[in-house]
């Protein structure tokens, strides 16, 4: 396998938090790689360290030791400004609680990453409208986030994440605040986006959600406990998961 086709390479990542005198090992020796166009779920119970891993993968945080390469660049060696730029252009975040800015219209929310990228107004408008069309919200551009439903909010959040056409979409419990039916719709949208070639990383503790991916990285107590690969059962059309110990 060629390294250039890999979006992420995690190489022995440790993350240690100092809580007063006590040191907490949130992540220990995490190593994996993710290929372009892959659909991966990072799964684990709460407190397993998956959020910490997501923050590092999202370039919001740096590993204490070990390296994380995003498209060949070592995240740990970059400055805050460079990390912000990577967050802006390479990563699209989808949050559990949507994290839309309440005072801005939906269109303005989606335009925001482009604004920070320094794109001119007209182009921003065109791109944001396009992204909202992809998630099926082209008719709600002027609405404020509090005027639409939870499912719609998550769609806006997805539109905002992909408006810059990032290398990866990073979704943190994207269905956590939604009812089952709406959650299924949102997951269908992710499936669709992956089918169009987007690299998607889901962080979740729900098996149902994780099974939308083609690979599951299972984390427990800050370590990778095992990987699971999906094998399509030819006769039953039901996915079967093959577990590989880390």
């Amino acid at each position: 396998m060629n390294n250039s086709s890999k979006v992420f390479i995690a190489d022995g990542i440790d993350k240690v938090y100092a809580m007063g005198d006590v040191k907490v090992n949130a992540l220990r020796d995490i190593s994996f790689s993710i290929q372009t166009g892959e659909y991966v779920a990072i799964m684990g119970p709460s407190g397993s360290g998956k959020s910490t891993l997501m923050h590092i993968m999202g370039c919001l945080d740096r590993p204490t030791s070990g390296s994380l390469y995003l498209r060949g660049k070592d995240i740990g060696s970059l400055s805050d400004g460079e990390l912000a730029e990577i967050r802006n252009t390479e990563i699209g975040f989808v949050f559990q609680n949507f994290n839309l800015l309440p005072n801005m219209s939906i269109l303005e929310n989606v335009e925001l990453p482009l604004l920070y990228a320094g794109m001119p107004a007209r182009e921003r408008r065109t791109r944001a409208t396009w992204a909202l069309e992809v998630v099926g919200l082209a008719d709600r551009l002027r609405h404020k986030p509090n005027e639409i439903s939870g499912g719609q909010k998550q769609r806006v959040s997805i539109a905002r994440a992909m408006v810059n056409q990032p290398a990866i979409l990073l979704a943190d419990e994207p269905t956590g605040n939604l009812d089952t039916a709406t959650g299924k719709e949102i997951m269908a949208l992710f499936d669709e986006l992956n089918a169009k070639g987007n690299t998607i990383i889901l962080v979740t503790h729900e098996r149902d959600v994780a099974e939308h991916a083609t690979r599951i990285i299972y984390i427990l107590d800050g370590r990778i406990e095992h990987f699971e690969f999906r094998i399509q059962d030819e006769e039953e059309h039901v996915p079967v998961w093959e577990v590989v110990e880390a």
């Binding site: 999202g58 919001l60 805050d80 400004g81 912000a84 730029e85 967050r87 802006n88 252009t89 975040f93 994290n99 839309l100 800015l101 925001l112 990453p113 920070y116 990228a117 905002r160 810059n164």
Partner: peptide, 16 residues
Amino acid sequence: TREIGIRKAIGAKRKH
């Protein structure tokens, strides 16, 4: 604070 966090997550730099 949360708004600032969101803005930073989607790429706002210090100067922004």
